[in-house]
Every structure is written in C-alpha cells, then in structure tokens.
Write a protein that binds this DNA or RNA. Structure first.
Length: 587
RNA sequence: CGGGGCGUAGCGCAGUUUGGUUAGCGCGUCGGCUUUGGGAGCCGAAGGUCCCCGGUUCAAAUCCGGGCGCCCCGACCA
C-alpha cells in the first residue's frame, strides 16, 4: 500500500472528545472516526486490524468445531417477549417500528434468535452437539458509552451458542470454548486473566470472564498473590478473617459499655451519623433489609465503610433477593427508613446475617428502629442475636484468598470475552427441544460465548503504546512492515521503491510512505500507526548501501543491512514475531 | 437517569464575565520559492448558519428562555 493512496489523515493534536489513550491514538492514527456517541466508522487502517482479529477468531472457532452463520440485525419483539427480555433488557434495547406498526429491536445479543432457529431445525439428539457462531454488529443503547471503542453502542462482537443433550455435553462444549479463547487472546497479544464472574442479564450458572488488566478498565477483579484464584469483584469471595472462629465462639462482642440510645436528628446515612457522633464509619453497622423470593425477610449487616454484595446475599439465602421497599421497612422497624437496626428483628422472624467483619466489632453504632435515634455501644450477642456470620461484602485489596492463605489484590481490567453455561434458561421458555435416545423430549442444554472484537482493538491500543503512538503485535497490525525513504525523490526514493516491491513480492504486507513530506513528519506518522517492522531508507544507503531495520517496540536497536538482504531479514523477523504469539500446543 | 463540563474554520483553542468596527490565533489544506534523519522557513490564498429555535436590544458569538449534540463522574455489559 502506498501511503499517498491510503485514507490516512493523522491528527497532531489530541481530539478534545477523547479521554482514554486508546481512544486518542485510534483517532489520531486514522483507525476510527466518530459518527455519533458510541458509534464509529472503522477507517481502512482500523478495518484492516479488525479483519485480522476476525480472521484469528474465525480460525480458532472453526478449529474448535463451531460453524459460522450470520443472523439478522432486526429482531421481532415477539421473540424477545417469549423470554421476558423485551422488558428485562429495557432501554438497552434500541427499539424501532416498521410501517405496519410492528415492533423490532436491534439485536444486542442473539440467544432468542438462535434458540428459535434451533427449535425449527434441530429435533434429534443425532444433530447434537452443535455450536453456531457469528461475527457481526451488535447494538446496545448503553447508559453511557465511554472511551471510544472500549464501550460503544454499536460494536463488533463474536457470539457463539452451543447446544447439547445434557450437562456433561455442555461441560465439554464450554471447555472447548475456554481453550479456543485462550488461543485467540494469546494470538492477539493480550495478556489475559480468566476470572469467575456473575452471570448478569444473560442468565445461567457458571461463567468465566477473560480480563485484561488495565488502569482504564471499568471492571474490578481480585487476584490472589499465591495461587491462581482470580474473580470479578462482583463475584470474588474472601477467606474468613484470622481469628473469626475465636470471636464467634465467645457468643458476643467484647464491649462492656452499656447500650445507650442517642438522638441523631435527621441523620440517616452512614456519613451523616458518623460525622454527627464523631466516630469513624467503620464503627457503625449498617442493617439492610431484604425480601427473599420465598417471602422471608433478611437483615444483612455490614460495617459502615463496607458495601453489601447482593449477589453474595442471594447465594447465601438461596433465592433472589430484593431490597425491602419503604413500607416494608417501616412496618418492620416501626420507624422511617434510615434508622433500621438489628435489635428486636429476630423476634419478628427476620433472618439475621452479618458480615465476618462484624464479629470483631464491639461498642459500635446501630440504628435504633426509631426516628432520629441510634444506639451507641451496641454489642452483638449481648444486645441482639445473629443467626450467621458470612461473607457478605465486596472483596478488597488485602482480603484473604478463599482458596489458599494468600492475599487478594484488586486491579482495574477490561473484559474482552465472556463464556456462559446457560443450561435451559432459553430453551425451556422457548420450548426448544429435541428427542433424545430414550425417546423423550428434552430442552437443549445451552452455552453462549462472546468476544468483543472491536473492544479487542481498543484494548490492544490501551496496553501496547508509548508516548509516540501505537505498538501493534504483528498479528493485529494493519500492516507488517513500513518503508520510509527520508527523501521523497531521487536515489533514496528509488531504492525504497525497490525494497517495497521486493517485500510485496515476498508476500509481506507493507506500506511505502511515498508522500512528499519531510522526514520528521514521516517518522512521526510511522511511529503513531505502530506497524511492527520499520525500514528506513536514509543516508546509510547512500554512504554504504545499507538500509536500516528496526522494530517499533524497540526503535533504538537499529540494524543496518545491505539493501538486497532487507527482504530476507524482514521475513525472518516476521517469523519470529508471529512465533512469539503462537500458543503452545496443549492449549 | 442524576451530577459536572463543553459546543466559534478540518483539528486544537482565544474572544462570552462587562453586548459595539470586517470574529481572531496555532496547526492542517491549496499555490509559489527555499528546504529535507524526528511534526521546516518565507510569501500568498481559500475556508465560518459562532450548535439550533425563540426573545431582549439601535446592535447578540456575547444577555435571557427553550431545545439538540458531545465529553467526564456514578448504577449495566463484549
């Protein structure tokens, strides 16, 4: 490709709209252009990189036995109403209406469509297992698009769906995808961590996220310093703190000060109460009331400076839970919302759960179940009963690993892939069934597997760059090599043309900067785009007949080679660079 | 949706507080000359519904009202 012919308009200055490095660099290097919030055109350079990501994904998916197809972008509302997600997904769905007044949505994911397809076409266990995937545009009307391609409203995604006879089959399909994903992200040059996660709106049971640690990431994960344990913060468990059993065995807190009611006029939140009583937030205990699906009322107590993890509470209770509404709270505590406390609740049949950390507290502050009042010097066991101490809050850096005696460390991360075991969450409501060997009709046992294609590009930019621009892994770079003649005319230009032609003949994807620009401009642009192999045709050619070859990631290590040996060297370097990103075979 | 910021030439911005000539600056673009190893110099030129609508005023980029768009911070996701 001759750079003069490419739609390439590099920006010297950082566009005001971009905050994240990946967003800035992809804009500056002419990879993307914004059309609207979270909606981007992929320019020729960006699209070349995306096509490479797509090719890798496609290759590995095919190798794993999946079949590619392409499903519609417009989904009829009735399909989504079958699973209840037309309402459940809510405003995330971009809804539209045709001339007949029929409603559609732009597909944010394709469980409904694929399940509908399966129930039409798959009727026998003989057709299973089946894994179908597509690579295409998804639309999610996100609450807030962010960071360019990191979270767009319209984005490229690979989504795959597996169909099996039973759980054992699903386990195999899931494992095949896990391995394929490892190969995919390795080949993309992304250092990833596999973490346990919550299922979210997709539903289902077990699921794993593929995360890339990056400061700009919107996800938090916790990783053990010693063993391999890693989990999304939504999911991360923590080891019971040192000495928990000893404290619990005592049956009550250690405080001896008498329980005392104090007036806290109109102070409801932890901050307000703590400030008013001049204590630290960690000397308060929040009592949060929840209603379980089976009607039980649960009190969840966490320290004032901690945050309750509802998913953990739900898992402990064994059903979904939702925060009790104001009337329920008021009926139970006989006080307005904001003053709930644990005393007297157990007597009313409330299940009393407390986070581990509460066991260590003594003489703390709790709500008094009375307007404008709190108790100070409260002690559990003495002043109120606790049914169970458990892990109820979000984990943090410094908490103990649940699997070993290591310590957890929290990191920001970007989610690039997510694999789910869905079970029969979609096949059952949609009556997608097959007839098994025993002649019985059974719902498909499904899995689904996503990869954010366009997000991979942004993540690579986020991880691989320096002050001057992008530094692409060769597998994803829009081109493999870049030839820069420091003069745009004359002998050096001629040599550059020859080198360029040679490389093309040898099958190298190469750019020739044939623009009539000053050398400095060309160097800046070459570094900005970040193609891995750089070839400079400069003075050394004129002086000694040697061209300069170097890698973008290590620009200062320059090698000088006779012009006729350039192609051979580039081929060698190329082979090495690809080899670095080749997954080892057992993966 | 809540909170904050922004909208002036392709890009980055000044001008708006305190209304007043022909709306500026840098970069980029086009033409010319000189340059050529890390975003060159000089000369010349083009390029604007000052986000939109309405109001106030002799006069609005500037003041007022309404709307739209974009970015950032919080609850969702690949």
């Amino acid at each position: 490709m001759r750079l003069s012919q490419l739609l390439f308009v590099s920006l010297r200055e950082v566009p005001a709209e971009a905050e994240l490095v990946s967003h800035q660099l992809l804009l500056r290097a002419s990879f993307i252009r914004k059309l609207s919030a979270g909606i981007y055109t992929y320019l020729p350079l960006g699209w070349r990189s995306l096509l490479k990501i797509i090719a890798i994904v496609r290759e590995e998916m095919n190798k794993a036995g999946a079949q590619e197809l392409l499903m519609p972008f417009a989904h009829p509302a009735e399909l989504w109403q079958e699973t209840g997600r037309w309402d459940e997904y809510g405003d995330l769905l971009m809804k539209l209406c045709d001339r007949q007044g029929r409603w559609f949505c732009l597909g944010p994911t394709h469980e409904e469509v694929i399940t509908d397809l399966a129930r039409q076409m798959v009727h026998s266990y003989r057709q299973l297992p089946l894994n179908l995937y597509q690579i295409g545009t998804k639309f999610r009307d996100e609450l807030r698009p962010r960071g360019g391609l990191i979270r767009a409203r319209e984005f490229l995604m690979k989504d795959a769906y597996s169909f099996d006879r039973d759980e054992a089959g699903l386990d195999k399909s899931f494992e095949a995808m896990r391995k394929a994903y490892i190969r995919i992200f390795t080949r993309c040059g992304l250092p990833f961590i596999i973490v346990e996660a919550e299922a979210g709106a997709i539903g289902g049971t077990e699921n794993l996220e593929f995360m890339v640690i990056a400061d700009s990431g919107e996800d938090r994960l916790l990783q053990c310093s010693q063993c391999g344990y890693a989990a999304n913060r939504e999911r991360a468990e923590r080891r019971p703190p040192e000495g928990l059993e000893r404290f619990v065995a005592k049956g009550q807190g250690e405080g001896t000060a008498p329980l005392q009611k104090v007036a806290t006029p109109n102070r409801r939140t932890v901050e307000e109460v703590a400030e008013f009583l001049r204590v630290r937030p960690d000397q308060l205990v929040k009592t949060l009331l929840y209603v379980a699906d089976d009607g039980r009322i649960v009190a969840a107590m966490v320290r004032g400076d901690h945050e309750l993890n509802e998913a953990k509470l739900a898992r402990l209770v064994g059903t979904k839970v939702r925060m009790a509404d104001a009337p329920t709270v008021e009926r139970l505590t006989e006080a307005p919302v904001g003053f709930a406390g644990p005393i007297g609740l157990k007597e009313k049949g409330v299940l009393m759960l407390a986070d581990y950390d509460i066991a260590f507290l003594s003489d703390f502050v709790i709500g008094a179940n009375e307007a404008d009042a709190h108790f100070i010097n409260a002690n559990w066991g003495r002043d109120f009963a606790i049914d169970r101490f458990a892990d109820l809050r979000f984990a943090d850096s410094g908490d103990g690993c649940p699997r070993c005696d290591g310590i957890l460390q929290m990191h920001n991360a970007i989610e690039v892939g997510h694999i789910f075991k869905l079970g029969t969450r979609y096949s059952e409501p949609m009556r997608a069934t097959f007839v098994d060997e025993d002649g019985k009709e059974k719902p498909f046992v499904m899995g689904c597997y996503g990869i954010g294609i366009s997000r991979i590009l942004a993540t690579i930019a986020e991880i691989h760059h320096d002050d001057d621009g992008l530094i692409f892994p060769i597998t994803i770079a829009p081109f493999e090599a870049w030839v820069l003649p420091i003069e745009s005319e004359g002998d050096l230009r001629e040599v550059a043309e020859r080198v360029y032609a040679d490389l093309q003949r040898a099958g190298v994807e190469v750019v020739l900067d044939d623009r009539d620009e000053r050398a400095g401009v060309k160097f800046k642009d070459m570094d900005l785009v970040g193609v891995p192999i750089q070839i400079v045709v400069g003075r050394s050619v004129r002086e000694r007949g040697e061209a300069e070859i170097r890698l973008r990631r290590n620009r200062d290590d320059r090698r000088y080679l006779p012009v006729h040996a350039v192609t051979e060297t580039v081929l060698t370097l190329r082979r090495q660079l690809y080899a670095e990103l080749t997954p080892n075979e057992e993966a």
